[in-house]
Amino acid sequence: MKKIAFFNNKGGVGKTTLVYHVAHMLVERGQRVLLMDLDPQANLSAMCVSEERLEQLWPDALEHPQTIFGCIRPILRGLGDIAEPHIEELTPGLSLVVGDLALSSFEDKLSDAWPRALDRDEAAFRTLSAFHRVTQLAGQAFGADICFFDVGPNLGAINRAALLASDFFITPLAPDLFSMQGLRNLGPTLSDWRSGWADRLSRNTATDIDLPHGELRPLGYIVMQAGMRLSRPVSAYERWVRRMPTEFHRSVLGDGTAPTNTDSDEWCLGIMRHYQSLMPLAQDAQKAMFQLRPGDGAIGAHMGAVQRCRADFDRLSTRILEQVDIVTSSAGT
């Protein structure tokens, strides 16, 4: 199972919508996909599961929620190790470990465990590897080929544990100043997390704990929410799009050279259009936008947009799978 986190410490770039649609496209292509909602805001779960069902999965704190919080709750309470994950099957081939607003309470526990792992504290390693081990259990139970992590837009301890649990990460970017600044913060932070985890792994004495490798390998970036005219970004965005290859190569890859545009940059996985007119229809139908039919209200110009949306996500999914193979081969794994 390949584990991919979609991560940007700048919010509002359409990350959760991207995860949802790429997952549905891969399922159409025969992949079994597991979704891990590791964002305490639980936006992916809200997109995937009805409110009525979420109310059943989120009981009060005295009970045992069937969510990611339920899995780590024994560690949080100091009463044991991770609990068996509940796997919510959404469609054949697509499942979800449901997110939970209560997950935010795990932040302090993870923060406290990070320095304690340097002292060879076994409990600290159990805490820091909780997301990794829950994901492995869920992936094995579901028979997943690929797992997507949806995480929040910050550089906190929850995201550190989530990124360390992943094999790869993809960075969705909006063509604006804030995404550029986010990239500048992201690269050094990921480097610190990677080296910090390697140091801790060398000190681990509890060989019975399944720990993640924490290599944090980038797959590339996706330009999101770019207004499109004749399939090219409008002029208001062009200057930011032009700067993305250089900033990504410098800040994330540590590479001083970069292509001059996204078209020639192998690390640019795609430029995705707005599909604002389709989102309300998709939400009402509880479908991916490219799965809409006339019976869902996608008629006239909407059907043309549905077809373009399908082509865009099919192309993006192909690039992601290709890049996984390329990065894996280059790493010699």
Rank of each mutant, 00 (worst) to 15 (best):
Q66L: 15
L76D: 03
Q56V: 15
A42W: 01
P74L: 06
C71E: 00
R73W: 00
W58D: 06
A46C: 11
L62H: 10
E55I: 14
C71L: 05
E51F: 06
A46G: 13
F69H: 04
C48K: 05
L44E: 01
I68C: 08
Q56G: 11
L76E: 04
A61Q: 07
V49E: 02
S45K: 05
L62E: 14
M47S: 14
D37S: 09
D60E: 14
I68L: 15
R53Y: 00
I75H: 01
D37G: 09
L62S: 14
T67V: 10
D37R: 02
G70C: 11
L57R: 04
C48E: 09
M36W: 03
E55D: 15
P65C: 02
M36C: 08
W58R: 12
R77N: 05
E51M: 11
I68Y: 02
L54S: 05
Q56T: 15
A61N: 05
S50G: 14
Q41N: 14
L57Q: 04
E55L: 14
L76F: 08
A42C: 13
L38I: 15
Q41P: 08
A42T: 13
D39A: 12
D60N: 13
E51W: 03
W58V: 12
N43P: 13
I72N: 01
L62A: 14
L54Y: 05
L57T: 10
L76M: 08
Q41R: 04
I72K: 03
D39S: 09
R73N: 11
E51Y: 05
P65K: 00
A61R: 02
L57W: 03
I75D: 00
R73Q: 11
I75S: 04
I75R: 00
A61L: 03
D39N: 09
Q56Y: 10
M47G: 15
L38N: 08
I72W: 02
S50F: 09
C48D: 03
Q41S: 12
H64F: 07
S45V: 12
Q56A: 15
D39C: 11
A61W: 01
D37M: 11
L44H: 04
I72Q: 02
Q66I: 07
I75L: 11
S50A: 13
Q41V: 14
N43Y: 05
T67W: 00
P40M: 07
C48Y: 05
D60F: 10
L62P: 01
C48P: 03
L44M: 12
E55T: 15
M47L: 15
A46L: 13
I68M: 13
E52G: 15
